[in-house]
Design a protein around this nucleic acid. Structure first.
Lengths: 222, 222
DNA sequence: CCAAAAGTGTTGACTGTACACCCATGT
DNA sequence: ACATGGGTGTACAGTCAACACTTTTGG
């Protein structure tokens, strides 16, 4: 048996999306070592020798931001020769979603200051992470159109306007209320509950929920 | 600066499609070393330390099958822990297209017997390559729908039926002649030439060509 | 003249889009 | 009473799917 030629360093990076304050945001952490020390970057790190890239992502997200049990999907493997000043380092990138209520950051446990940035106002980032985020947004926009991933961004019950807002934020354009409701309802993914959204100073909105309560996997609409 | 932890062996594999004898085929080579010696596998190999995965694919395809200058696109990175008996080996897979007339295999130059197999009659394959091929076919089916990649599978001029045949083969279903022609023509990608297809014993077919003669990149239809 | 593939239009169903007003509540 | 977002229906245009016959050539 031949020896294994040319070992290469392999990292993983995650583009974690959330919707908070009604806008689409991405999770960044402050790098605690060179290169790019103190620059914002996607949460990521080297793959350990006995784990898969998916296991590595889950380990790193838990350690750096206390995030667990979220939907993740492979995005792309970036290996441009100039992407890392340390040499030949490739990264397998993932994208994922969290709901606001799943997050609790903590200065002591998460010293790299995990912070959600609006995709409209991203800071300068380490490596080629700006490119990776851009690519992830494109993928997210496409997936929203033909799958039910929006599920991963919504709480158990939600008013219809919150659902529509996600589509508007991700696609970055306004949608017609009536047409959107008609189309989404025809997909038979959600149903009204008996609940109403209290506490606004307008007419209370009907709350909806997904019909399949443990709808974990991704389904195609068509 | 920290040392680079956990080097991992990284390979590339290519799923090369062609249409020949009117059917969709995939290129396989016979492995010339362990593991899986003499089994059919996707053409691939280890990435050298100074090259990107794309460069590696191009180098390997040229060496193993004499194929150069073809359209390639990254497919997925497979890294299941059990995919390679040698240990932790991940593979960045690519898919690509050749036209029949671009190929000339040669026993002396290409000792691994590169051979196109119909996707309907694939032999047992090494590693997880059957899974990779299956994934590539799905991607190809999707891409055919909303991009102009069919370009990469057609000669300079071609009868309309050859174009339709590609769609039928890849999607594995029959399409209505009239509807297909109407729809494809409305995309304004091809135009009729003055040429006719001679040599059949039926009515000669009009030959078409793509309007942009150097249409290398992938364009979306919509 | 026969076999074989080439070529051509119309209709009905469905889907997407544009568009404006009343409703229920809190202040 | 008013400000605010919640909630609803119709009409037109464009797209998709079903469907059958004539044309041109070689043998």
């Amino acid at each position: 048996m031949k020896s294994y030629p040319s070992p290469i360093s392999v990292t993983v990076d995650a583009v974690i999306f959330t919707i908070s304050d009604g806008t689409l945001k991405v999770l960044l952490v402050s790098r605690d070592e060179a290169p790019f020390k103190n620059k914002w970057s996607l949460p990521g790190g080297f793959i350990h020798s006995k784990e898969t890239s998916l296991q590595a992502i889950k380990r790193i997200l838990k350690a750096k931001a206390g995030i667990a049990n979220i939907f993740t999907e492979q995005l792309y493997t970036f290996d441009d020769s100039n992407r890392d000043p340390r040499g030949h380092v490739i990264t397998i990138s993932y994208f994922a979603f969290v709901r606001e209520d799943q997050i609790k950051f903590n200065k002591a446990k998460h010293p790299q200051s995990p912070t959600f940035f609006s995709v409209q106002k991203l800071p300068p980032m380490a490596f080629d992470h700006a490119k990776i985020v851009k690519y992830a947004i494109k993928r997210l926009q496409a997936k929203l159109e033909y799958t039910n991933i929006v599920y991963a961004l919504l709480p158990k019950t939600f008013p219809f306007s919150q659902l529509q807002n996600i589509y508007e934020e991700v696609w970055n354009r306004k949608l017609d209320k009536r047409n959107f409701r008609k189309k989404f309802m025809s997909l038979k993914l959600i149903k009204p509950t008996r609940g109403l959204l209290e506490g606004s100073r307008q007419r209370p909105a009907r709350l909806f929920q997904f019909i399949n309560p443990n709808q974990q996997e991704l389904k195609k609409f068509f």
